[in-house]
Every structure is written in C-alpha cells, then in structure tokens.
Design a protein around this nucleic acid. Structure first.
Lengths: 158, 158
DNA sequence: TATTGTTATATAGGTTCCAATGTATATGGG
DNA sequence: CCCATATACATTGGAACCTATATAACAATA
C-alpha cells in the first residue's frame, strides 16, 4: 500500500532543484561561515570584489533578488563589518556600497573554499555533463523568467 | 571594464539552481495560492493525498526537511484548516496528521495547475532532455547529500 | 522503582527570500 | 516655481528554511 509513497515525490525536476538549492546553501554556509560570510552574500562579494562601489538598486538588479531582500542583507553585512556605505554625491537618495578592507582581505580564501566545494559536488561529472547541466538550467531559467513576467501584470517592460 | 561583471555570476550550476528554485517557488505559489495552499505544502499534500495519516516526524523525513520546519508548516496548515491532528493512541508524544476534507477536495485542482505549470516550464524541452536533467540532478543531489553527511559530525547512520 | 537514555514535538532565534507600502529625494512639464 | 510622477531606500509582515535547545513521553536497565 505504501507502494508509490516516497517515490515520485522526488522524481520531478522542481523538487530535485529545490533540494539541490537547499543543499548547496547549507554546504556553502558551512564553508564561508568560518570566514564571517553567509552564502547569500556571495553575489554582493562578487560584484564588489575589485574594490568598486554601487548602489543598493544596482546590487539587487545584478544579483537578481528583490530590493527589500538586498536592503536586509546589506544591513546585516554592515552590522558585521563587511560593507560600508558612503552617500552618493550625485543623488541624495542613494548611497554607494563597497566592501570593507577586512572583507576584501578574505576574498581569496572565500574563492578557495567555494571552488573546492564545487569541485567536490561535481566530482564524478564530466566536463560535458556540467556543460549540459548548465545549458539545461539556463534554458529552464529563461522559461521561468518568461512565465513569471507574463503572468505578472506588474512590469510589462521598462 | 565591466567586462565580466554580471557574466560569470550566473554561469555556475549553483546560482543557476538557486535561481530556478526561487522561480519555481514563486510560480508555484501563484498557482496554488488561489486554492488556499502554499508551494512548500505540496509534499505534505502529496504524502497525505489518499486520506492517510502520519506523524510529524514521518512527514519531515519523507519530505526531506527538518522537523522544526515541518512543525512550523503544520501549524500554519492547521491554522488554515488544511490539516487536522489526532492523538496517536499508541504514543502519547505524537499525533497523527491528516488532510481535512476541504483540503482533500481541492487536490484535483492542485494537481491540474501544477502539471500545467510544469508543462509550460519545460515547453521547449524534449523528453530526453528532461530525463537527462533529472538524472544529472539526482546524481548531484546524491553527491551533495554525501558531502553534507560527511562533514556533519551529527548523525553518521541511523 | 529510579535512573538513564531515546524519541516526538515544541520553542527560540536567525537567515533569506517574497509582497506591499511608506518616505524622501529627483526630475520634468505646466 | 510648483506639482505630479518616478526613483532609492526603508519598513512591515509573512513564509520557509535552518540550528540549537527544551519538554515530555516512552523504553531499557540497574
């Protein structure tokens, strides 16, 4: 009677993707937490890694998360001494965000552990298989973006 | 100078998977919210869909989320009239969870909209490509599980 | 039976996401 | 110059995860 109970629950792409996403997050958090970072902060670190600065809006757009999520994350990063804000001389509403020297100094180690973790996760994958996976995921994401944009009466275009 | 800024951020599998997971969640939420469900509740609905009942622990294990996450979700589902708890006659600590009649009645429509959404997301994918994607994801998940289990001094085996 | 350990839930605290809304600064047209 | 609108950011509230503990019932044993 419990024949198909826990079978097809993880046979579809969506739950598998959700599962992988959570596992990556847990694993990544373990890797970068000793360095004082969280996994969700990686896009910000990446975007500001060469000492540049940009507005909260830019960061949210490039990292593809909503502005409130970015605002919340930046306030935690500021609290933890990872970023600093300086008023934008050209626009009184916005401030320019950059990494602190302490955060910059830790970037090499961050790259290192992240790369190591990635290698392990794709241990038995051939280069072709990784390429294939990335390609399929990119197509899937573009489909999903389209669906989200379509059914969202919000912003048809800019 | 902004040559590689927003390029390689989404070239690796992990961020692509995270992105897809979030998109699926948003899309799924839109689809099942009119029916009174949330996307995260789908595993519970699936596991109890034929009127059976099980403990919170079983649900958490089968849905592959932690027990506190399940507890929190079940309390929301109870609040929303989707599930009911009855004391387990055989064990005073646990209660048996089952779907309410109202929730059961809505399952066909849930299946319908979920299937439709899935079809759209994989619109331009061949059957072989979906199979390939599922296969790659399953392998990835098993690698990730292994990594999480290894580095976790917590539960070696059960 | 009293102690000790295990198990099922519950609770607390924190992160990352979302939607919706408020606030303050720019900006462009009358 | 003033007002309407657009924009940048902040705030609120909620969902779905996590880790770490507490509580209470059960189970095994000394």
């Amino acid at each position: 009677m419990s024949r198909s109970v826990d079978w097809s629950l993880f046979d579809n792409p969506a739950p598998l993707i959700n599962m992988a996403s959570r596992s990556f997050a847990r694993l990544g958090d373990r890797q970068v937490k000793p360095l004082g970072f969280a996994i969700g902060q990686m896009p910000v670190v990446y975007l500001l890694r060469d000492g540049g600065s940009m507005s909260q809006k830019q960061l949210a757009t490039l990292a593809k998360i909503e502005q409130p999520s970015m605002a919340q994350m930046l306030s935690r990063m500021e609290r933890d001494g990872l970023i600093q804000r300086s008023p934008d001389p050209a626009d009184g509403r916005s401030s320019l965000i950059s990494l602190t020297r302490g955060a910059m100094a830790k970037i090499p180690k961050v790259r290192e552990v992240m790369n190591a973790g990635n290698r392990q996760a794709f241990d038995d994958f051939s280069k072709a298989e990784i390429t294939m996976l990335v390609d399929l995921l990119r197509r899937l994401n573009s489909n999903l973006d389209r669906l989200l944009a379509e059914e969202n009466p919000g912003e048809p275009r800019s």
